Each structure stands twice: as C-alpha cells, then as structure tokens.
Computed example of a mutant assay.
Amino acid sequence: MILTVTANPAIDLTYRVDALEVGETHRVAAPASRAGGKGINVARVIAQTGGHAFALTTAGGPTGLELVNDLLAGGVPHEVVPVAAPTRSSVAIVDTGSGLTTIFNETGAALSDAEWDAFRDAVERLAIPATCIVGSGSLPPDAPADFYARLVALATAHGIPSIVDAIGPGLLLAAEAGATVLKPNRRELAESTGESDPIVGAERLLALGAQLVLVSLGEEGMLAVGTSASGAREVLSARLPQPLHGNATGAGDAGVAAVASCLAAGITDPAPILRRATAWSAAAVLAPLAGELDPSYPELESRLVFSS
C-alpha cells in the first residue's frame, strides 16, 4: 500500500474557455469540481493504473465535507483528520484555444498544534503497512519546516522508500533526511536551490543526501539525476518527439505516482523509473482533470526519446 500524505488539500475547480482574455468577461459552464491536492491526485493515478494507494489528508468546513464526499464517491481509500479551518479551493482555467492553463491556488489556513499532532499520529500509524510514503504539495501556513523530512525519516525507520514533491526549505530538508526520490519541477528546483541549471540544482540535492532527483521540464520532458553503482554522477533524460497540448494540471502528480508504483514494486533503476514517470506525466496532460491519465500512457512510453 502506497501512503500519500496531503496536509493542505483543496477542492479543485476546473473551468474551460475557448480563449482567456485578461480583463474581459467570460461566460462559462459550471466547473468540474473534485477533491484535489497533490497527494490525492497521486492516489487517484495509482488506483487507475491498478496499484493500491491510501490517501491521508485533512478536511474542514463545508468544502471539507465536499472533499470527503468526493473521495467516497470516487472510491479513493482514505483517512481524513478533521480540522477547524475550511478546506481551501484551487481554480484552473483551461484555455482550449491556446492549450494553456492558468491556476489560482488558495494558500489555505494554519492548523492548530492539536491538529498537527493528530495528523502526525495518523501518519505514524498508517506507515506500518505502507510499502512507500509520498509527501507532496504545499503545506498550510506556519507548518513545521521539517514535516517532509520527518516523513522521510519515518519511511527510513520502517525500511521503505520515500518520495517528496515540495519546494523551498521542505525540499532541502527532505534531501538532508535522505529521501529516496525528490521530484520538483524546473521552477521549484531553481527557487529551492538558487541554481538555474536543473542538473546543477539536482546535484545540490544529491550532495545534501537525496538518492535520486527527477525534474519535470514541461514540454522538454523529464530529467533524472542520480549516482551510478560506480559512484559516478548519472544524468538521464526522456521526452516525447513532439510536445503535447492539453491541461498540464496534475502532470507532476502523475509523475510522482509513476515513481511510487516503481519503488513499491522494488524497481530502483533510474531508467525505468524515468520512462514511466515521463509517460504518465504526458498522459496526464491529455486527460481532462488532474488525477487522471489518458489511456494512451503505454503507447506514449513506447514513443519516448531517451538519452544519457
């Protein structure tokens, strides 16, 4: 069972417009609404591809009730830690003409000390049967900076792999804790490390203690930076021959789901991990909503251009 941990979930609202014009009024159909947050998206993708995932999250207020009802309706195995603050919302506006998506993410509200204690207790309890722990997404305001590092330490104590998709101090501390895989995108990596070159930024995370770093490069595919059996630095890249157009929301989460499915199955070679992560990310771009893959993901993997 792959445990996904989402401390700051959201109700994802997705609007579609023919052309987004800044400063103009748009008439739109009712948005698609579903439980979201990176870890929940990861759990959905793992389930769609035949894996077993369990989503741990929080929920509060009317939007929290909506989130729980959607998880139940979608058959997503989960546990919810009740919190006082309403669950935040995230709005994605998909411009079908240009293929670009604009996203507005609410920050969310801080958790009380008692709520953090309850959430951490749930993580520790659910880690016992887990085969992999995934920590991903933003954290509520005033969250402990070392929250993801503690997830990594917990996974290590249980002898299971860990994956962290975060930004800033959370990413750096997870690296220092020895995360099995870190998966930032290019912008998150640059903001976290101060390095504009993704290979240099990934190498900094490896130097801190991470075992493997996968970097999403958007239309350019994905990069994997690790250490070979001989101790030499190993850099691999994968991309499709032509970029895809669609909704990129959730593409990174699909990549994390691919990594988790590999690690839970005992696959640790960076090459197959990179192939699956790149293909699943691409398939997510073709899907209408975050947390889904277009069924073409096996065919997309066969078309990848792979280099080292």
Rank of each mutant, 00 (worst) to 15 (best):
R276K: 07
R16S: 14
S136G: 14
L126D: 00
L126V: 00
G75D: 09
L289W: 00
L205S: 08
A85Q: 15
T180P: 08
P288D: 10
F306A: 10
G159V: 02
A55L: 07
N69Q: 14
A149V: 08
K38C: 01
P62Q: 13
H26T: 14
A109W: 00
A32I: 05
A59E: 06
R125D: 05
V45H: 03
F119A: 01
D18A: 11
P272Q: 09
A122F: 08
A127R: 00
G226K: 01
C132L: 12
D18W: 07
A19L: 13
G137Q: 06
A284Y: 00
G60T: 10
A207Y: 04
R233N: 13
D294V: 01
P31G: 03
A157S: 15
A257R: 00
R125P: 04
G252V: 01
R44N: 11
N247R: 11
P86E: 11
L286V: 05
A53L: 05
A224M: 01
V215K: 03
P144M: 02
A149R: 02
I40K: 10
I128E: 03
P241Q: 10
P31R: 04
L139K: 00
S230R: 11
P298V: 06
Y15I: 08
H78C: 10
L173A: 12
G39Q: 09
L217E: 09
T249S: 11
P62S: 14
S196F: 06
F104P: 03
P270C: 08
L20Y: 05
V181F: 07
L223N: 02
G168M: 08
S33Q: 10
L65K: 12
R88I: 07
A257C: 03
V305R: 09
T25D: 12
S98G: 15
V81L: 08
A287C: 02
G194Y: 12
T49W: 06
S302H: 09
A282Y: 03
E191Q: 13
G246V: 02
V164Q: 00
S136T: 13
F119K: 00
I267K: 02
R204I: 06
V80N: 13
V256I: 11
L139Y: 02
G99V: 11
P198D: 06
E203T: 04
F119M: 06
M222C: 15
I167L: 13
G194P: 05
G39Y: 09
R233S: 15
P140N: 12
L217R: 06
T6K: 04
I128R: 07
T107A: 14
R34P: 04
P141Q: 14
A118D: 15
E203F: 00
G23H: 07
H78D: 05
F54C: 10
I267A: 02
D12S: 14
D18P: 12
P140F: 05
G194R: 09
G226E: 06
I273S: 03
H245M: 13
E115H: 10
V94Q: 06
A122T: 10
E234H: 09
L263E: 04
L172S: 09
T249V: 15
Y148C: 08
R120E: 15
D70L: 06
V259P: 00
L236W: 11
A19M: 12
V285H: 03
P141T: 13
